[in-house]
Computed example of a mutant assay.
Amino acid sequence: MSKKTSFIVRTLLAVMLVLAINGQAGASGEAAVKTAFLYNFFKFIEWPQAASQVAYNLCTTENDHLGDSLLVLENKTIYGKPMLVRREVGNDELKNCHIVFIGASENARAIIGVLKGLPIVTVSDQPGFIAYGGMIGLVQDGSRLTFEINLELANAENVHISAKLLKLAKNVNTAK
């Protein structure tokens, strides 16, 4: 494992540990942890068009409930490219995103339908998200927040998820 990869894995594990220690951190703490997960997902995912992109786009739908926690991502870079945070993005503009966070109160199935066939990673904290076509679901595991991955869908959409991220997932759906 390279030093850079080792650092990234340790960073993601540290975020998970912070949540485990502060399981009762409240809504703002939970939003900060979700934001940290979203940022770190970028480091473990490869998109087919990434080489030609000048920036990585993190988008949220309406009612993302992440509050000001996304402000920490301003001026962040991923592999030398800036990360742009775009909030409350409409369905027509979602096709320009790399990761789309779908808030718990949104119609995830409709948004997933808009993005079907595109190499866009959908993430949500809605229960059962990967079962109905989402790519990464943020799930509570006791007092900890963890995630599950729909690898079958990621592969179908030509999105490569690192084995290191798959190892950290609570559940990986590979069934056909």
Rank of each mutant, 00 (worst) to 15 (best):
Q24C: 08
Q24V: 10
A25R: 15
A25G: 15
A25H: 12
A25K: 11
A25V: 13
G26L: 10
G26C: 14
A27L: 12
G29Q: 04
G29M: 13
G29K: 09
G29C: 12
E30A: 10
E30H: 10
A31G: 10
A31F: 00
A32I: 03
A32N: 11
A32D: 07
V33Q: 11
K34I: 02
K34M: 09
A36K: 09
F37Y: 04
Y39Q: 11
Y39C: 04
N40W: 14
N40E: 14
F41G: 03
F41W: 12
F42V: 02
F42N: 05
K43Y: 09
K43L: 10
K43M: 12
K43P: 06
K43N: 13
K43G: 06
K43Q: 12
I45A: 08
E46R: 15
E46Q: 13
E46Y: 07
E46I: 08
W47Y: 04
W47R: 04
P48L: 01
Q49K: 11
A50W: 01
S52P: 06
S52L: 06
S52V: 11
S52F: 07
S52H: 11
S52Q: 14
Q53W: 00
V54E: 05
A55N: 14
A55G: 03
Y56H: 11
Y56N: 08
N57F: 12
L58M: 02
C59S: 04
C59W: 00
C59V: 01
T60S: 01
T61Y: 02
E62Y: 00
E62N: 10
E62V: 08
N63R: 12
D64G: 00
H65E: 15
L66T: 00
L66P: 03
G67A: 09
G67K: 00
G67P: 12
D68S: 13
S69L: 00
L70Q: 01
L70R: 02
L71I: 11
L71D: 13
V72H: 02
V72D: 11
E74F: 04
N75C: 09
K76G: 01
K76R: 14
T77N: 15
I78R: 01
I78S: 15
I78A: 15
I78L: 15
I78K: 14
Y79V: 09
Y79E: 14
G80I: 08
G80V: 05
G80Q: 13
G80F: 06
M83R: 06
L84W: 10
L84C: 04
L84R: 13
R87S: 02
E88H: 13
E88P: 07
E88C: 11
E88V: 06
V89W: 00
N91A: 14
D92S: 13
D92I: 10
E93I: 08
E93M: 10
E93K: 14
L94A: 06
K95I: 05
K95C: 09
N96R: 15
N96E: 13
C97H: 06
H98W: 04
H98I: 05
H98A: 12
H98R: 09
I99E: 07
I99Y: 03
I99G: 06
V100K: 02
F101N: 01
F101T: 05
I102Q: 02
G103K: 01
A104G: 07
A104F: 05
A104N: 12
S105L: 09
S105R: 12
E106L: 05
E106V: 07
N107P: 07
N107Q: 03
N107M: 00
I111L: 03
I112Y: 06
I112G: 08
I112M: 08
G113P: 01
G113S: 11
G113I: 00
V114D: 14
V114L: 04
